[in-house]
Simulated scan of single mutants.
Amino acid sequence: MQTNEPVNSVVHYLRSPDGMITELGRIPTGGAGSGTFKPISGQPSAPNAFEGAASVILSPDRRFLFATNGGDNSVSSFRVSEDGGLALLDVKPTGNAVTGRSGTAKSLAYAPASETLFVLHSFGPDHVRLMSVDGEGRLSLRLERYSVNTPDKPHRVATMVALSPDGRFLFVGTTFDEPPTANPDGSAILWVERDGQPKSIASNEPDPDGLIVFPVAADGTLGAPSFHDAGGGSPFYIAFLHGRPDTFVVGYAVGDGIVMGRIDADGMVSFGPLTPINTSAGKPSELCWLSVSPDDRTVFATNFGYSNISSFQLDGGAPVVAKDPACPRVPGDGSFRALNGTVSSGPSDNWVSPDGAYLYQIYGNASKLVGYEIQPDGSLEEITSVSIPYNSPQGLAGV
C-alpha cells in the first residue's frame, strides 16, 4: 500500500497463514504523494485523494512493483525479492506538468509483452501517458499521449485504467464529464444548469459514453478510442475475471451497483443488466472498488459513502447480491461526509488474497487497514486491523 503522503512511501506487510497482517517497513518511493489534499474536489483533507484505483501494481511475473506519485506526477519502480522485500529502482516524471497544489497521476496498468506501463491521470487532455520498462525495471517516458475527452466534453475526469488479459485492449473508466464544483462544506456538486435544465456531471449519465476502449498495438501504442455506454453512472472500476478473459465487471460510483460485460475480438463491448445494492441510506452509495475472488464466483464492492462492503455472486449470468452489506459499517472520525451526506470513513482500495480466504480494505478516514475472513455466504468477518496514515493511503497489491 502507498501512503500517498507528501514524502511518499510504500508500506510492506507480511500476511500470515491465518490472515493476520504485520507491517514490516516503509520504503520511500522517491516521489511526492498528494497527502490528504483531494485535487478533484479541492478539499484540503479527504479520503481517497486520488479518486482512482490501481495506483500500486505488480508485474505478472512479480519481479517489479510500480506505484504512482500523485503529488508530483511521477512513477516509481521497485524490485521485489522472493520474500516480498522492495528495493527502489527508478522514479520518473509522467510528462504531465503539475498545476496547482498536486498532480493527478492515479492509476497504472502494465503490458509485459511490450514492456509498457500505462499511466492514467484524472485531468487531461493527456489522460494516458506511456512509459517503457527495461529488463532491470528502469523507466523511460515515451512521447505518446492520449485523451478521453470528446469535443463536447473537453474536461473529463478519468478514474481507472485496466488492460484486458490478452493485452489487446486498454479500458479507461470515468467519474465526471467535468470537474465538480464544491459546496461550502467541500462536498462536490453533481449538477449543473444547461439550457435552463439541470444536468448531471456524472459520466455516462445521461450521455452514454463513459467507458473508453483503446486498441493496443504490439509496441504498446494505442489506436483511436471508442466510447461506450458503460451501463450506469460513473463507471469507476473495471475488473476482469480470472478464468474468462473476455468477461469483466464494472462498479459504478453513481449507478450504485455492478454490471457484467464482455468484449469480443473486435473490441466491441456489451453489458448485461445492472445489479443494484440497497440505497436506502442515500444516493449515491459511491460503489467504487471491486475485488473478484480467484474462482470468479464472488465480487466484493466497496461503498465509499456507506463505509462498508457489499458482495455479489457470479453464476454465469447477471450478478446476484449475496450480502448487502457484507460487513458492519466502519466509522471514521466524523469529519468527512460523502456525496449523499452521510458521515463516512472513506473506504477505498481493497484486495483479495490469492487463496480466496481473506479480503483487505483501506478505511482512510478511520486510519485503518482492515482484514476480513471471507465466509461461504459472501459475508466478511473482521480478523485483523492495522493503523495507517490518516485519509491519504491508496492502492493495494499482494502475492
Rank of each mutant, 00 (worst) to 15 (best):
L86G: 13
R63A: 12
G364P: 00
A97I: 06
G30L: 10
V157Q: 13
G356F: 10
T22E: 09
A218M: 07
G251Q: 06
I383T: 14
P328K: 09
A357V: 06
I201V: 15
L339A: 07
S16P: 01
S81W: 11
R262D: 03
D195S: 08
L88D: 00
F37E: 00
D333H: 15
P354Y: 00
G332I: 07
K199E: 07
S16Y: 07
K199T: 15
L314G: 07
G346C: 13
S76Q: 11
P347G: 10
G35A: 08
P319G: 13
F304Y: 12
S77Q: 12
D246P: 08
E144C: 04
S147L: 02
A326G: 11
N308F: 09
G378M: 00
G332K: 04
A217L: 09
L141C: 01
G186A: 02
G35M: 07
R138N: 03
R79E: 05
M260R: 06
G95C: 13
T175A: 15
S76N: 14
L120H: 11
G85I: 02
S16H: 12
P276D: 00
S102L: 08
I383P: 03
L24C: 04
T221P: 03
E205L: 11
K199N: 14
V352S: 04
V352Y: 07
Y306S: 14
P17H: 11
R297M: 10
N149K: 08
G243V: 00
F66R: 01
G35K: 04
I27G: 06
P354H: 02
S76I: 05
S102A: 05
P294V: 12
G332Y: 06
P245Y: 03
E82R: 11
L359E: 06
A162V: 03
N4S: 15
K368D: 14
S385N: 15
F78L: 14
R129S: 08
S344P: 02
L369V: 10
A281N: 10
S122Q: 13
Y372H: 03
L139E: 00
W351E: 06
S41A: 04
F37C: 07
G305S: 12
Q43N: 12
G305V: 00
F227A: 07
P44V: 09
T68G: 13
W191D: 15
M131W: 04
H12V: 11
D90T: 08
R62F: 04
H228N: 11
V172E: 02
V343Q: 03
A326E: 13
P60Y: 00
D126C: 13
P154T: 09
I57L: 07
T3F: 11
Y146M: 09
T150E: 14
G25C: 02
L380T: 07
L241I: 05
A158W: 03
D18G: 12
V75D: 12
T174M: 08
T150N: 08
S385T: 05
N69M: 05
T104L: 15
G173S: 04
P273C: 02
K283Q: 06
G167D: 05
N48D: 14
N96S: 06
N149I: 03
L241D: 01
K92Y: 12
F176Y: 08
E373H: 05
R194D: 11
I362P: 03
M1S: 08
K199H: 07
F37H: 14
E51Q: 03
F123T: 14
T175H: 01
V321R: 07
V249Y: 00
H12W: 06
A318V: 05
